[in-house]
Design a protein around this nucleic acid. Structure first.
Lengths: 339, 339
DNA sequence: AACGCTAATCTAAACGTTTCGAATCTGTCA
DNA sequence: TGACAGATTCGAAACGTTTAGATTAGCGTT
């Protein structure tokens, strides 16, 4: 800008005024300045601007795993939304680890991000302090956080699993295995409740040996399924509470020599693009990823636009049961269906 | 830092020296400063630091689509690598559009990223100028770019497709449909060559009606497959040159009432986590995503570490044919196999 | 006692912007 | 003619760091 000003024989203040439209500058100088900018190939330095203005037009986004297709989709939507608004997004993967998350959030804050969207991990950690300081707005994604009172968009997980398990019960299943992630994050907690409530609503017992938990990864789903299938009275259906784990479930079923849905029915949380091309076509709970991403972005953009004092808003969206053919009717139900 | 200095009754220079370890400061002052930092809860402002130092410890990463599992995986690996090195990464999706890409690269450059990893789109666009200016190092990912002479890591696409198509030929297939993306990007170009060379090497004709091109999306694969399957002499096998398009291929096969591999064999580029759990288990060309991501990160980190003048390095990695059961033997071959 | 050396600390300029208030210019009006 | 208003333009401080060079203090030598 220094150089531009010299070349155009004006002051830097004038150049700045023209660039930002903060004051009227005469046609003559406008002309000279624009010419100089072109000659020099000048580009305004956003870092210096950020320093002075106190805003970077950059937001931070952290997710546990980007390879989980649910997060992939949501990240994609969020990225697009902020791109449209002229914001850049810094992406971090926390790998389901609280320390990593804290570190990455610090990294983002150091870089003066204007806002944060967090699919949090563990208990909130450093998040609590950040929200309380209230310098940078935070919106929680997918997972609520006790003691962190801020904007959030989540799914009605309880209801979604309730519906899915109820569907299995209607098909005639009585012993339904359930594979959950670690229960310290809200969706897993709520989904588990949905499972229990569905059983109770149908007057079925909640057998603890049918509930297994893992750490979200394929291998955990595999191990959990192996355990379920080796029970003396094994379940006739399995519901897996997240997407990577159901891959493990399918592999375990295959390895043990069973097949789905003939020998065992399977349903899971999170839809994925392949779900209706291959056999079996998995019955899933689809999350409205587009809406989730857009709402999260909108909540944050609204705060960034200056609406800082409104009370925290919590958006709860509905999942949708995508019934395909990985669950088969059992017993009397099967009779009446085939009749 | 101002406040810390006052509270500790030292100058800002001393605080800075302590923080950066650029000069020895006495135990006494160290103590006072550290105490002040704790009391105040001081965090160094990375933006001001960046302005002064001319480096942001942030890199930019652009990919065409983050939902393509290949890019998802690579992004994940790259993010981890830079995280380990203390860098943040700004992620942009260009949506296979050159203008979007140019815009996003400008956005990243404005923010003074220290380096750029680009899975480019269209002809290089603005990229050419950036590489020539040589202010910020660029490494190309997955896709080379004519006239842009810089570090790159790509797959030996020609060879990978050559092997896959040769495999199909060995199975007895003679008419092999080929679905490609737009041929203006190097991998698509090279893969197509691999296809042609494999046919030629086997003495087979290259029938132009068997080659269809689309724009990388599922719907394009669907349409292309529909066309191929409605040929009077339809192919007995289809190779799809990218991952989202093969979903379309599978859907088209299903919708037209055929099944894979009984009626038609399918293979495709890019492996994915589900490939061996469902039926049919797709035969794919797996890219070494871990290595690709790490190498790209290493190339850039090396430049960032100061090695600016070394000539451009081009890394070519090998794909791996993952043979599963979506392709069946045909004719004489089938006889001898079942015999 | 004066000197030089080392180690520790400080002063002040710089990075590239934005912005406030002051300065200049051009007409207009009393 | 002189004062005033409005429109432009400018000078300089500020944002929060880093860093070169100046200053100071402590201490052993001669």
């Amino acid at each position: 800008m220094q150089h531009v000003a010299e070349a155009a024989r004006v002051s830097v203040a004038t150049v700045s005024a023209l660039l930002n439209g903060t004051a009227t500058v005469s046609p003559e100088l406008t002309q000279r300045i624009e010419q100089a900018i072109r000659d020099i190939g000048y580009k305004r330095n956003a870092i210096a601007r950020s320093l002075k203005m106190g805003t970077t037009r950059t937001i931070g986004l952290t997710v546990p795993h980007i390879t989980n297709p649910f997060f992939t989709d949501v990240v994609s939507v969020i990225q697009q939304a902020f791109d449209r608004a002229g914001y850049a997004v810094m992406l971090c993967c926390t790998d389901e680890d609280l320390n990593t998350q804290d570190e990455q959030i610090r990294l983002l804050l150091d870089r003066m991000v204007d806002g944060l969207i967090v699919a949090r991990v563990g208990d909130g950690g450093i998040l609590k302090d950040i929200v309380e300081d209230a310098n940078v707005p935070v919106v929680l994604l997918d997972r609520l956080c006790e003691g962190v009172d801020t904007d959030a968009v989540v799914l009605d997980n309880r209801r979604a699993v309730f519906d899915a398990v109820t569907y299995l019960i209607h098909l005639g299943h009585r012993r339904i295995g359930y594979i959950t992630g670690t229960s310290d994050i809200s969706p897993m907690h709520d989904r588990m409740i949905g499972y229990r409530e569905a059983l109770q609503a149908a007057g079925l017992p909640v057998a603890e040996e049918l509930v297994r938990s893992g750490n979200f990864h394929e291998i955990d789903g595999y191990n959990a399924t192996m355990q379920l299938l080796s029970l003396h009275d094994r379940p006739s259906a399995i519901f897996s509470a997240n997407n990577p784990m159901v891959i493990g479930t399918m592999k375990a079923i295959r390895d043990i020599g069973l097949s789905c849905p003939e020998d065992i029915s399977v349903a899971c949380f999170d839809d994925f693009p392949w779900s209706d091309v291959f056999v079996p076509q998995l019955t899933t709970v689809a999350q409205p990823v587009q809406a989730i991403g857009e709402q999260a972005a909108n909540l944050l953009l609204d705060r960034l636009a200056g609406n800082r004092d409104a009370p925290p808003r919590k958006l709860v969206l509905k999942g949708r049961l995508m019934i395909r053919n990985s669950c088969r009717p059992l017993g009397a139900v099967a009779q009446s269906v085939s009749a």
